[in-house]
């Protein structure tokens, strides 16, 4: 089984984000970057499928600057076989140009499965996986929380409002992974040392201009200071009143 996992380098969820001087992008200085957490599930699932099959190849693909090589190597350290970096200086917030570049790379690969995280934690667009599927005319199941593959067919579960949706699909297919799918492994320390020796192709790509422009970024409004309505049991009526009539949460 040949499996592609598309990964993105994103700021760590604990990072304190600053907007840069242009007002349209974040200032990357001093920010720690990690493999998008949703794509850790994707890498883990691909490795488990390969291990269960006893053979196959897991290829990690990312679009981004040279720094994304480190992100690819994180996945190689977990056990993926080789990496491909579609090198571009700038990753736009617009998902379509990135999806087109990835689709062009994936089209030639002969993959049985193509994994994405359901979203990247920097832009939350949820867009690239389904777009790539559409561009490649492949079936797509998004936000999967369980997966079975057998006899050229797959069955995935998606957690939906109040229940679980079970989707059957033929291979090849595009899947985007949700939390709960598996427990991603830690890269073994030996694996970290060996990751640099695994093949990593760097291919220059020019992204098309997309249809979306970022006009400005702004910080969320600061939370207003709380108000103490009183102390002890005597304050309960005032608190209930405030929750009911001011905050309107009761």
């Amino acid at each position: 089984m040949k499996i592609a996992v598309c990964v993105k380098r994103v700021p760590d969820s604990e990072a304190r984000i600053k907007i840069d001087a242009s007002g349209k992008a974040i200032d990357e200085g001093g920010v720690k970057f990690v493999l998008n957490p949703y794509e850790e599930f994707a890498v883990e699932e691909a490795l488990k499928l390969k291990e269960a099959a006893g053979s196959g190849e897991v290829v990690v693909i990312s679009a981004g600057s040279d720094a994304s090589q480190e992100t690819i190597r994180t996945a190689l350290a977990m056990g993926a076989d080789r990496g491909v970096l579609l090198k571009t200086d700038h990753i736009p917030l617009d998902p379509l140009p990135v999806a087109k570049a990835l689709a062009a790379e994936l089209a030639e690969g002969g993959y049985d499965l193509i994994f994405f995280g359901k979203l990247a934690i920097d832009d939350y667009s949820h867009g690239i996986g389904p777009m790539v599927a559409e561009l490649l005319s492949l079936p797509c199941v998004s936000a999967i929380a369980a997966l079975q593959i057998a006899n050229g067919k797959g069955k995935a579960e998606r957690e939906i409002e109040g229940g679980v949706e079970v989707v059957e699909f033929p291979l090849p297919a595009v899947l985007t992974t949700d939390k709960g799918l598996n427990e991603p492994r830690y890269p073994a320390l030996r694996g970290i040392m060996l990751a640099k020796k695994k093949p990593l192709d760097v291919k220059d790509v020019a992204l098309e201009t997309g249809g979306l422009d970022v006009l400005s970024l702004s910080y969320p409004p600061e939370r207003k200071a709380g108000r103490i309505v009183g102390e002890g049991a005597a304050a309960v009526p005032a608190l209930v009143d405030a929750l009911k009539n001011e905050a309107k949460v009761l």
Binding site: E70, R73, T74, A77, Y186, P187, L189, I192, M193, A195, K196
Partner: peptide, 9 residues
């Protein structure tokens, strides 16, 4: 990079 990756792990 490897030393940092070991530490992070």
């Amino acid at each position: 990079e490897e030393e940092r990756a070991v530490r992070e792990t």
